[in-house]
């Protein structure tokens, strides 16, 4: 029984539990206020669908922040990857009925583009020792700039309908494809961070990079992998974004990086590195999404959502600080 009590105590000490309670309370309040509009399968499904792309960015961001880094470039990499994907597809077959081979090639190109930016981030951070904030601020500008150069700044909407109708807006067994992809990625990433050596090294490096180096962990190589993973997921998000909106959405996505970081922090991952959970991040994505949808249904100006999320974000980081300080005194 001692084990159970210890486990419970540890659980209560984790930020994720509190974040989950906040989400549960929000859902409960909106459901009571507007049971017919909010507490419906349709509404929940649309919240989940609209959040799926951000979930992918935020999952990659979780790994990065656990290493005590930051990736500001994800929103731009998403756009760039979408551009590369659609340009590849159009180069192979510019008609609206391009086949799956073409779509697969475009998807591969989009993923590779994301992976490339991520690996570049990782290389500059781990090998050139440029701080993550600066490296990813630089690639944020470069990826978006190249995306605009490749399109001359005009959105490409020529997305094969086979892609848009299935992955973009279709469902499988009643579940939208976007949600299916997001769930699979979350499941893989959550186990990866919690159960594997990769996840443990990620936390060890975020906790004490020098200690990790002394026991023979190659922190530089690992950091490159982590940023490459974040880039790859941003590339995947770019392809999904392209499929969902049937457009390269050049002008949107400027807030994506901050939304992803906010979700990670809300989800209980420490900005100082060392601890974090993918499930927490998913909860962190849903809090702003639920607020936005709830406010819309209550006909409260949706701008309140950004105010509320900003305040909760500061509170989340403050409580993490408090927890760390208490721990140091112990």
């Amino acid at each position: 029984m001692n084990h159970a009590r210890e486990a419970l105590r540890r659980l209560r000490g984790q930020n994720t539990v509190w974040t989950f309670l906040v989400l549960a309370v929000l859902v409960l309040v909106f459901s009571i206020l507007r049971p017919n509009a909010f507490a419906t399968v349709f509404e929940f499904r649309s919240i989940a669908t609209e959040s799926a792309i951000l979930v992918l960015l935020a999952v990659g961001q979780t790994f990065v922040i656990v290493t005590a880094g930051i990736d500001l470039s994800v929103g731009s990499v998403l756009i760039f990857s979408g551009v590369v994907a659609v340009r590849t597809m159009n180069a192979l077959d510019s008609g609206p009925h391009a086949g799956w081979g073409v779509i697969a090639a475009g998807t591969g190109a989009g993923l590779a583009a994301g992976l490339g930016w991520g690996a570049l981030n990782g290389f500059l951070i781990a090998k050139a020792k440029v701080p993550p904030l600066i490296v990813t601020l630089g690639t944020l500008g470069m990826a978006l700039g190249f995306g605009q150069i490749l399109t001359h700044g005009i959105d490409i909407g020529n997305v094969p309908s086979a892609l848009a109708d299935t992955v973009g807006s279709g469902s499988v067994l009643g579940i939208p494809w976007l949600i299916v992809v997001a769930v699979l990625v979350v499941a893989a990433a959550a186990s990866g961070l919690a159960l594997t050596r990769f996840g443990r090294y990620t936390r060890a490096i975020g906790s004490n990079a020098e200690a990790a180096g002394r026991v023979g962990i190659r922190a530089d190589r690992h950091l490159i992998k982590v940023y490459a993973l974040s880039g790859l997921l941003a590339g995947l998000a770019g392809v999904l974004n392209l499929a969902h909106f049937s457009s390269t959405t050049l002008t949107s996505g400027t807030q994506d990086n901050l939304n992803a970081i906010a979700a990670v922090v809300l989800g209980g991952t420490s900005l100082f590195g060392g601890t974090g959970s993918v499930i927490g991040t998913v909860i962190g994505v849903f809090i702003p999404a639920v607020l936005e949808s709830g406010f819309a249904i209550l006909q409260v100006q949706s701008f309140w959502q950004t105010v509320a999320v900003g305040a909760v974000l500061v509170a989340a980081v403050y409580s993490d600080q408090l927890r760390r300080r208490r721990r140091q005194q112990a």
Partner: peptide
């Protein structure tokens, strides 16, 4: 030179992790 966020067992095995057998081990599962 300990990783403060990891527990004592994780620190003891840091850099020398034991993996599960079979497929899980191949996937890097601890």
């Amino acid at each position: 030179a300990l990783a403060a966020d990891l527990d004592a067992a994780a620190n003891l095995f840091l850099g020398r992790e034991q993996l599960r057998g079979g497929l899980l081990g191949a996937l890097g599962v601890l």
